[in-house]
Design a protein around this nucleic acid. Structure first.
Length: 462
RNA sequence: GGCUGAAUAGCAUAGUGGUAAUGCACCGGAUUGCAAAUCCGAGUACCUCAGUUCGAUUCUGAGUUCAGCCUCCA
């Protein structure tokens, strides 16, 4: 039985889908005005893994992740670039897709864009106005009246009076209550705008997720996810909008992933430690980044450090080494490994524990290959690869993985390496160990590691 | 100030009311011409104090430290 930690109740709960064997899931996606950074990568990878595991568990999953393609930052950036908004957002949507592909992140089943769902937002705002939950301020903006929604604060565990007393809440003359939030922004000259009964403008950020999730997944669905910073106010507001509109429950399970830190500092542009996915991929392979992220629990904070990425590389090398040269076979069924892997994943997607099981399986494979044969270990190898698939790992050809590297400091082609290995084999045949070791050292200095076994030499890049 | 969450070996990360697991690093052994890889083995860790308990790293309380949110944010 799958257990999911529900941010709403602050405890693990048994997952029971609204419709048996079906899951409807919504995740807050990117605002597309720049390249995706490591934090975005974690959201992508975490919920991709949730998506994969739900599917592997036999659920039919509808996975919606929105694209915010209209907001203040986008307008500002387009103006700075002298670029049309459409061109800017499409450019970064394409870049986002490329980043996802490299990280082996599967596409969601739906990727709605805010600008493509304005009528649904207008309808929802109108409903809120009709119900007296929303009002129009003197500046033309439409606001949500948080005092009209009893449950306001239930997701983030806050009370309205505490939040009002917070010293960081700015006083705004236009709002009835400082905690009220904007549903519709009256347009300023030159900004993109859409017509509305209460005046031309554009949607507030929060309303888009309420409108698009309801359109695609219905008024009541199973899982809603996002970064932990979205818990308040974004998701709190989303609940207020959706439930204020429908009068009943919106989402059953709220999931929030932890933040990424860089060298024990908060990742921020002002600190200059803001890494985009594509910057990191110049130094590490995407699978290494993915392994690094899954090697800690999704709710915990994750510290990015080169030591950790190097360790991820070494770990993947070990797993791929166990698979290298193994014959094709059907995966071993009903093993203790599979059972423990599933038990770990069922426990709120405990990927670190699941990975630990994979390492124990790898040791068993190595043991059998040594004491028995490759053939005897083949079905366990297939199982390892199958388990890896659920995490989006280990799907490359092992030999290609081990011979590959992001940084080719060696400057040697595969053919160059093979030629040197042949020279070394000739030397070894003549027991010319000095020459043999010289060639091996030369290759090692260029990042190529040789392994002699069973009369033949294999190689990999460090 | 309000609300969350976290403190486990050299590093990282799981987990448990009773021999604390996984990867990297380190040590010994097997294997190897020597290595690498692999296997076997050893070793070192549960923030502090109090309480509950036969027994606490795990539960409770207090404290310390750290982080996140309270404003746009994944």
């Amino acid at each position: 039985m799958l257990q999911i930690y529900n941010s709403l109740t602050r405890q693990k709960e048994t997952f029971i889908p609204i419709v048996p064997r079906q899951v409807r899931m919504y995740v807050c996606g990117m605002t597309v005005y720049d390249y995706c950074h490591l934090g975005h990568a974690r959201v992508m990878v975490v919920f991709d893994t949730v998506y994969r595991y739900l599917k592997a568990s036999g659920y039919a999953v509808q996975y919606v992740r929105n694209i915010t393609d209209i907001d203040d930052k986008i307008i500002k950036r387009a103006a700075e670039n002298g670029e049309p908004i459409d061109a800017l957002t499409q450019r970064f949507i394409d870049a986002m897709h490329a980043d996802e592909d490299s990280l082996k992140v599967l596409r969601p089943t739906d990727e709605p864009r805010a600008t493509g769902n304005i009528p649904e937002m207008l309808a929802m705002i109108q409903t809120l106005l009709d119900k007296g939950i929303a009002y129009q301020g003197s500046n033309g903006d439409v606001y949500y009246d948080v005092s009209k929604f009893d449950g306001y604060g239930k997701l983030s565990g806050r009370k309205l009076e505490d939040m009002r007393a917070g010293e960081r809440v700015a006083v705004d003359e236009v709002k009835d209550d400082p905690m009220d939030f904007v549903l519709w922004k009256a347009s300023k000259p030159g900004d993109p705008s859409w017509d509305a009964p209460w005046g031309a403008g554009r949607p507030g950020w929060h309303i888009e997720c309420s409108a698009m999730s309801q359109k695609l997944l219905g008024e009541h669905f199973d899982i809603h996810g996002g970064g932990s910073d979205l818990q308040f106010p974004h998701h709190e507001n989303e609940i207020a909008q959706s439930e204020g509109c429908t009068g009943h429950r919106h989402v059953n399970y709220w999931m929030h992933n932890g933040f990424i830190r860089i060298n024990d500092e908060k990742m921020s542009k002002s600190l200059g430690n803001f890494f985009t996915i594509r910057e990191v991929l110049q130094h590490y392979r995407a699978a290494e980044v993915r392994f690094f992220m899954l090697n800690s629990h999704y709710r915990s904070q994750l510290n990015y450090a080169t030591d950790q990425l190097d360790a991820a590389r070494a770990s993947l090398n070990r797993l791929y080494t166990a698979l290298r040269g193994l014959p094709e076979a059907g995966a071993a069924m009903h093993t203790d490994y599979e059972r423990r892997f599933s038990a770990a994943m069922d426990d709120d997607f405990n990927t670190p524990e699941a990975i630990a099981v994979m390492f124990e399986l790898a040791r068993d494979i190595n043991r059998i290959r040594t004491t028995q044969s490759d053939w005897a270990a083949a079905s366990l190898g297939a199982l390892l690869k199958l388990l890896g698939k659920t995490l989006g790992l280990l799907q490359d050809d092992p030999d290609e993985w081990l011979k590959g590297a992001v940084t080719r400091v060696d400057g040697l082609s595969d053919a160059d390496i093979e030629a040197l290995i042949q020279q070394r084999l000739d030397a070894r045949t003549n027991k010319n160990w000095a020459e043999s070791d010289r060639i091996r050292d030369e290759l090692k200095a260029k990042g190529v590691i040789l392994e002699d076994s069973a009369g033949k030499t294999t190689w990999r890049r460090a």
